[in-house]
Design a protein around this nucleic acid. Sequence first.
DNA 1: GCATCAATTCGACAGTTGTCTAACTATCAA
DNA 2: TTGATAGTTAGACAACTGTCGAATTGATGC
Lengths: 99, 99
Amino acid sequence: MAAKRTQPLPDGQIQLIARALADPRRYEILQKLSARNRPTPCTDILECIGVTAATLSHHMKELETAGLVRCEKKGKFVNYFPQPRILRAYLDRLKSDLS
Amino acid sequence: MAAKRTQPLPDGQIQLIARALADPRRYEILQKLSARNRPTPCTDILECIGVTAATLSHHMKELETAGLVRCEKKGKFVNYFPQPRILRAYLDRLKSDLS
DNA sequence: GCATCAATTCGACAGTTGTCTAACTATCAA
DNA sequence: TTGATAGTTAGACAACTGTCGAATTGATGC
């Protein structure tokens, strides 16, 4: 198949993504989020990551600011979704910048 | 063509690479190093990056520890080379972990 | 030897970041 | 309304990181 062209990200976002990925907790969160193929509330993430709710909230905001996840309120819960397009755009950028 | 399989990196190195890429100066250095297709001494890098020699030395060590560059002494000079294989392995890992 | 140039190491410092607890908001159910 | 649950915000703190200037090491050439 022909690979779909990703839309380019602004430099600022590239930096945000790089920093978001640089923390092991956030990497782990993204991994879980990608592995599970359904809307995932904070509570579910909390169970596998050993931090407080406050810390998790902080990390989720970082990931969201970077564009790597999107969230949607659903009653009491906040569901998170990974954004694979953004990740793909980031990988494409790294590839073209650094090789 | 069939893409060559990259050899997998240990988790520790993945984190080192992520952190190395998260700093804008280091990203810039890697970019220059990849763009120039020849051995590049510190002095050449210093010219385009606005930091002192001490700071540059610190950044180069981070990049080296991460495995993203290799260096070779040549008399007074230290020449740096990018390590595109490591970068490719990192990209492959991100792709498989996060999508 | 001595001076010069490339690069590293050392110590210090300011700014950033990950973490926590505690207090708060918002939603749901009894 | 009251209590429980999900998540955020605020403030504090320790650890880490990027930066610098100064001192140091190591190679080159006079």
